Measured scan of single mutants.
Amino acid sequence: HEITLHINGRRVKLRFRDEKAAEILKEAAKKGLDEEELKKLAEELWR
């Protein structure tokens, strides 16, 4: 699955395995994680 989040006016595509991962990524984006941090988090969730 993929999700596209808008971060600092940019579109960031993240891959994720399940809905739980999608929710975690959305929450992290709301908390203000930047693009690099979100990509790292997405990679961690993928494993």
Results as ranks from 00 to 15, higher is better:
1 H>Q: 11
1 H>N: 13
1 H>Y: 14
1 H>R: 10
1 H>M: 13
2 E>P: 02
3 I>P: 00
3 I>R: 02
3 I>Q: 02
3 I>E: 02
3 I>L: 15
4 T>F: 07
4 T>K: 03
5 L>Y: 01
5 L>A: 02
5 L>R: 01
6 H>I: 15
7 I>F: 04
8 N>I: 02
8 N>Q: 08
8 N>E: 08
9 G>P: 00
9 G>D: 05
10 R>T: 10
10 R>I: 12
10 R>V: 13
10 R>H: 13
10 R>C: 06
11 R>H: 15
11 R>P: 15
11 R>D: 15
12 V>W: 01
13 K>P: 03
13 K>C: 07
14 L>H: 01
14 L>G: 00
14 L>T: 02
14 L>Q: 00
14 L>M: 05
15 R>T: 04
16 F>N: 03
17 R>I: 13
17 R>F: 12
18 D>S: 09
18 D>R: 01
19 E>P: 12
20 K>H: 12
20 K>I: 10
20 K>Y: 12
21 A>T: 09
21 A>C: 06
21 A>P: 02
21 A>V: 05
22 A>M: 12
22 A>Y: 11
23 E>L: 11
23 E>I: 13
23 E>T: 13
23 E>K: 08
23 E>W: 06
24 I>M: 10
24 I>Q: 10
24 I>Y: 07
25 L>D: 00
25 L>S: 00
25 L>F: 08
26 K>Y: 12
26 K>E: 07
27 E>P: 00
27 E>W: 05
27 E>V: 09
28 A>M: 10
28 A>G: 09
28 A>Y: 08
30 K>N: 13
30 K>P: 01
30 K>I: 13
30 K>S: 13
30 K>R: 13
30 K>A: 14
31 K>A: 15
32 G>C: 05
32 G>K: 04
32 G>L: 07
32 G>T: 04
32 G>D: 05
32 G>R: 04
33 L>A: 13
33 L>S: 09
34 D>W: 06
34 D>H: 10
35 E>A: 11
35 E>L: 13
35 E>W: 12
35 E>S: 07
37 E>V: 08
37 E>N: 12
37 E>L: 11
38 L>Y: 02
38 L>C: 04
38 L>N: 00
38 L>P: 00
39 K>C: 05
39 K>P: 01
40 K>D: 11
40 K>F: 12
40 K>Y: 10
40 K>H: 12
40 K>A: 14
41 L>G: 00
41 L>Q: 02
42 A>H: 02
43 E>W: 06
43 E>K: 06
44 E>T: 08
45 L>W: 03
45 L>Y: 03
45 L>V: 03
46 W>I: 04
46 W>D: 04
46 W>E: 04
46 W>S: 03
46 W>G: 02
47 R>M: 14
47 R>I: 15
47 R>Y: 15
47 R>A: 15
